[in-house]
C-alpha cells in the first residue's frame, strides 16, 4: 500500500493529467445531450450579462451603421406592407387556419455574441425562454437563414449558426424546386455554403436562388444564398454546387426567431406514429 502511494505521488503529474483530461473529454463528448453543462456556456447569467454589457458599449461605436440598417429595413418593411406580405399574411392565416397550414410568428431579438472564425460557431441572443424561445426553433435575419436554437436560459438563447460543421438544412433551388441538403463549405469561408445531394436531372444556373424547402423547420422559401460555382456533371447520381450565403454573418445584429405554432402538434403526432411502428 505504501509503495502504491509513493508511486502515485512520484508520478502525480501523470495521474492528475489523466483525471482532468478524462473529465474534460467527458464534458466535450457529452455536451450535445448534457443539459447540466449548460453552466459552461454563454446562456448563463455571468457570461451572458458580460457579453450584454460589452455589446452595449460597442453599440455606441456602431450607432450610425445600425441606424442606416434600420432605416433600410423600415423601407423594406413598408414595401412589404403595401403588398401585404409580411404582417398581413400571418394575420390572415390566423383567421383562416386550415388543417394543414403551418403558422409562423416572428420574434425579434439581438445578437449579443457571435463568431465566424471557428469550425463550430454559435450566436447568443438577448432573449430566452421567458420570451417563449424554445430549443429547435429557426432563426433568420432579414437577408436569410441564420441558424437553429440549441439551448435556452430565462434571458438568453444559444443559436447554432449556419457556420457550424454539423448544421444541415433541407433546401431546394427556388426555380426548379429540386431538393437537396445545405451545409457550410469545407474551407471555413464565412461567405460560402454547399448545396449537395441534388438530383442529377436538375439544371442549375449560376445565380439561381437557393431557399429552404418544406422539410426544413423554417417556413418554405427563406433564402439561403445564390449558386456561385458549379462543378461539372459527372457520372454520379447527385450534384453539388457552391452557394454564396445570403446573410453576412460578420455583422449580424437584429434577427428573428421563428415560432411554428403547429410544431408541437406535429411532433407529438409523429412520435405517436413511431410508437405504433415500434409496437
Amino acid at each position: 500500500m505504501r509503495h502504491l502511494l509513493i508511486f502515485i505521488t512520484k508520478y502525480s503529474a501523470f495521474f492528475l493529467f489523466l483525471i482532468f483530461e478524462g473529465f474534460s473529454l467527458y464534458i466535450f463528448v457529452n455536451y450535445n445531450d448534457f443539459q447540466k453543462a449548460s453552466f459552461i456556456n454563454t446562456s448563463n447569467e455571468i457570461t451572458g450579462n458580460l457579453y450584454n454589457h460589452v455589446n452595449n458599449l460597442n453599440d455606441y461605436l456602431r450607432l450610425k451603421e445600425i441606424n442606416d440598417k434600420l432605416a433600410r429595413e423600415n423601407a423594406a418593411l413598408r414595401n412589404h406592407f403595401k403588398s401585404s406580405k409580411f404582417i398581413d399574411t400571418t394575420r390572415s392565416q390566423t383567421v383562416i387556419d386550415t388543417v394543414n397550414k403551418q403558422q409562423y410568428t416572428y420574434l425579434e431579438a439581438r445578437v449579443i455574441n457571435n463568431s465566424v472564425n471557428s469550425r463550430v460557431n454559435y450566436l447568443t441572443l438577448n432573449k430566452g425562454s421567458n420570451n417563449g424561445i424554445e430549443k429547435g426553433m429557426g432563426v433568420v435575419s432579414n437577408a436569410g437563414v441564420v441558424g437553429i436554437v440549441i439551448q435556452t436560459s430565462p434571458h438568453f438563447a444559444i443559436v447554432r449558426s449556419l457556420l457550424h460543421k454539423d448544421t444541415r438544412i433541407s433546401a431546394m433551388l427556388a426555380k426548379s424546386k429540386e431538393g437537396g441538403s445545405f451545409r457550410w463549405a469545407d474551407d471555413m469561408d464565412p461567405r460560402k455554403g454547399l448545396l449537395y445531394d441534388v438530383a442529377n436531372s436538375a439544371q442549375p444556373r449560376l445565380g439561381d436562388l437557393v431557399v429552404t424547402d418544406e422539410h426544413s423547420l423554417f417556413p418554405i422559401g427563406i433564402p439561403l444564398g445564390k449558386v456561385s460555382n458549379l462543378t461539372p456533371k459527372t457520372g454520379g447520381f447527385f450534384l453539388n454546387m457552391e452557394v454564396r450565403l445570403a446573410v453576412n454573418f460578420s455583422n449580424l445584429d437584429y434577427v428573428f426567431v421563428i415560432t411554428n405554432k403547429l410544431a408541437r402538434e406535429q411532433i407529438t403526432l409523429e412520435s405517436q406514429q413511431n410508437k405504433d411502428v415500434d409496437e
Partner: peptide, 20 residues
C-alpha cells in the same frame, strides 16, 4: 474560456494537456 466560446470541454482538455 469554454464558457465564452460555447465549446464545453474543448479548451479545458487542451489546457490540461498544456499543463502536463
Amino acid at each position: 474560456i469554454d464558457a465564452f466560446y460555447d465549446t464545453p470541454g474543448l479548451h479545458a482538455a487542451a489546457t490540461v494537456l498544456l499543463a502536463f
